[in-house]
Amino acid sequence: MRGLWPILKRELLGLFVTPIAWVIMAAFLFIEGLFFYFLIMSYSSQSDVIVGMGPAEAFFGQSEFFYFPLVLICPVLTMRLFAEERKSGTIEALLTAPVTPAAVVLGKYLATLCVYVVMWAPTVLYMFILSSHGEIDWSLVATGYAGTLLVGMAYLAIGTLASALTSSQLAAAMGATVFILAFFVMGYAARGFDEGSTRSMLEHVAVSSLMNDFSRGLVDSRRLVFWVSFAIIPLYATIRTVESWRWG
């Protein structure tokens, strides 16, 4: 994996200097803060509505608000990774350095994952606010964040692939958004089916099933396998795409 570390560092610099990362983090924290505020308001006004579920679990598992911003934010984080380098030609300097395509792809991908983690970090404060006013189960918070990380890993991997498939940043962002949204819609659609194989299949791919389980501390290996492969397969496809440019 020679070259991974310098590429990761440069990519982080690129994300923070062209202020994409700051803009995304500000937008994201605004929406999550708004969501958290309304969640607390609803809890404080009607304390017995959601029985057996604290606000922390509700934050991670009970609302589309939680992951809907990710549908847009992850593709915007990843859209420039390859598209920009191909448009400006810097990809030639990058790929003629003695580095493997895998290091290039993973370096770039991990940089966006770092931004993703940094973006979520301030929300830990919400948990401290909750714990100062009541009880909070920190292991549920941990699994909630683990689920969040899995979702990010998958969405960012799809965004990375989309960025490698086109030299237009807009097309990359749109492509990834549509793909992620399609899975999102499938999760919703599950509710429209009777119990049966279609419904369970749709539920299986739905981000809400993952977050429901994880926010309640249920770490199901089926979900793990599905979401980890959801990250690995696009990354593998990206590596192959980068290799294929040589032979195009």
Binding site: S88, G89, T90
Partner: peptide, 9 residues
């Protein structure tokens, strides 16, 4: 490379 493409930022 031709035209020396660089990271402008």
């Amino acid at each position: 490379p031709e035209a020396a493409p660089l990271y402008t930022e």
